[in-house]
Simulated assay, not measured.
Amino acid sequence: MSARETPVRAVIESASQAWAAGDADSFVENYADEATAILPGFTLLDRATIRTAMAAAFAGPLKGTRRIHRVQSVRFLDDTTAIVITRSATEPPADQSSIATWVVSGRSGRWLVEAYHDCPA
């Protein structure tokens, strides 16, 4: 892992930590206002919608779970844009794994999730 990757990977780790805490506000802290999340069966079109969906999920079916993202690759398109591929799993149960693509951008000295796409592995 290069030093250049460290802040990008920290964004993904932050999402995992917020998920484990069931904290929707912290979960979207590193998402851009106009971020999109595409998941099996639905699309969330901005940070506010992502926050609302995650708050409901953390209070319901995702309560007490954690999401582990294992970074497979980080590819920089330029100095301010990176594509990250993760193998991800929601536990429990341990059988819910996926492959995710994250597009992150460097803005005003910090990295933000611009787009997230998740599909079953």
Rank of each mutant, 00 (worst) to 15 (best):
residue 1 M to V: 14
residue 3 A to P: 12
residue 3 A to Q: 07
residue 3 A to W: 06
residue 3 A to V: 07
residue 3 A to T: 09
residue 5 E to Q: 06
residue 5 E to F: 09
residue 7 P to E: 00
residue 8 V to F: 07
residue 8 V to H: 01
residue 8 V to M: 01
residue 9 R to C: 14
residue 9 R to M: 13
residue 9 R to L: 15
residue 10 A to Q: 14
residue 11 V to R: 10
residue 12 I to R: 04
residue 12 I to Q: 05
residue 13 E to Y: 10
residue 14 S to M: 12
residue 14 S to H: 14
residue 14 S to V: 03
residue 15 A to F: 08
residue 15 A to T: 14
residue 15 A to N: 13
residue 16 S to N: 13
residue 17 Q to N: 12
residue 18 A to I: 06
residue 19 W to D: 00
residue 21 A to M: 03
residue 21 A to Q: 13
residue 23 D to V: 05
residue 25 D to V: 06
residue 25 D to Q: 13
residue 27 F to P: 13
residue 27 F to L: 15
residue 27 F to A: 10
residue 29 E to L: 02
residue 29 E to I: 00
residue 30 N to C: 03
residue 30 N to Y: 01
residue 32 A to K: 06
residue 34 E to H: 14
residue 36 T to P: 02
residue 37 A to F: 03
residue 38 I to G: 07
residue 38 I to S: 12
residue 39 L to E: 10
residue 39 L to H: 02
residue 39 L to W: 04
residue 40 P to C: 01
residue 42 F to M: 13
residue 44 L to W: 09
residue 44 L to C: 10
residue 44 L to S: 11
residue 45 L to H: 15
residue 45 L to A: 13
residue 46 D to L: 02
residue 47 R to N: 07
residue 48 A to D: 15
residue 48 A to E: 14
residue 51 R to C: 05
residue 51 R to N: 11
residue 51 R to V: 12
residue 52 T to K: 15
residue 52 T to A: 15
residue 53 A to Q: 08
residue 54 M to Y: 07
residue 54 M to W: 06
residue 54 M to A: 03
residue 55 A to K: 04
residue 55 A to V: 02
residue 57 A to T: 12
residue 57 A to N: 09
residue 57 A to P: 08
residue 58 F to E: 02
residue 58 F to P: 05
residue 59 A to P: 01
residue 61 P to Y: 09
residue 62 L to A: 10
residue 62 L to C: 08
residue 64 G to Q: 09
residue 65 T to M: 02
residue 67 R to F: 11
residue 68 I to M: 04
residue 68 I to W: 06
residue 70 R to F: 09
residue 72 Q to G: 10
residue 72 Q to W: 04
residue 73 S to K: 06
residue 73 S to C: 09
residue 74 V to G: 09
residue 74 V to Y: 12
residue 75 R to P: 11
residue 76 F to L: 02
residue 76 F to D: 00
residue 76 F to Y: 08
residue 76 F to Q: 03
residue 77 L to W: 11
residue 77 L to A: 07
residue 78 D to F: 11
residue 80 T to W: 10
residue 80 T to P: 01
residue 81 T to E: 10
residue 81 T to G: 06
residue 82 A to K: 02
residue 82 A to E: 04
residue 84 V to D: 05
residue 86 T to L: 05
residue 86 T to C: 13
residue 86 T to S: 14
residue 88 S to P: 12
residue 89 A to C: 13
residue 91 E to M: 06
residue 91 E to G: 03
residue 92 P to R: 08
residue 92 P to I: 07
residue 93 P to V: 04
residue 93 P to Y: 07
residue 94 A to I: 00
residue 94 A to S: 05
residue 94 A to E: 03
residue 94 A to N: 01
residue 94 A to C: 05
residue 95 D to H: 01
residue 96 Q to R: 11
residue 96 Q to K: 09
residue 97 S to P: 10
residue 98 S to D: 05
residue 99 I to A: 13
residue 99 I to W: 02
residue 99 I to P: 10
residue 99 I to G: 08
residue 100 A to M: 13
residue 100 A to P: 14
residue 101 T to P: 12
residue 102 W to Q: 00
residue 102 W to G: 02
residue 105 S to K: 03
residue 107 R to Y: 11
residue 110 R to E: 00
residue 112 L to E: 04
residue 117 H to Q: 02
residue 117 H to F: 00
residue 118 D to W: 04
residue 119 C to Q: 12
residue 119 C to L: 10
residue 119 C to H: 08
residue 120 P to H: 03
residue 121 A to M: 08
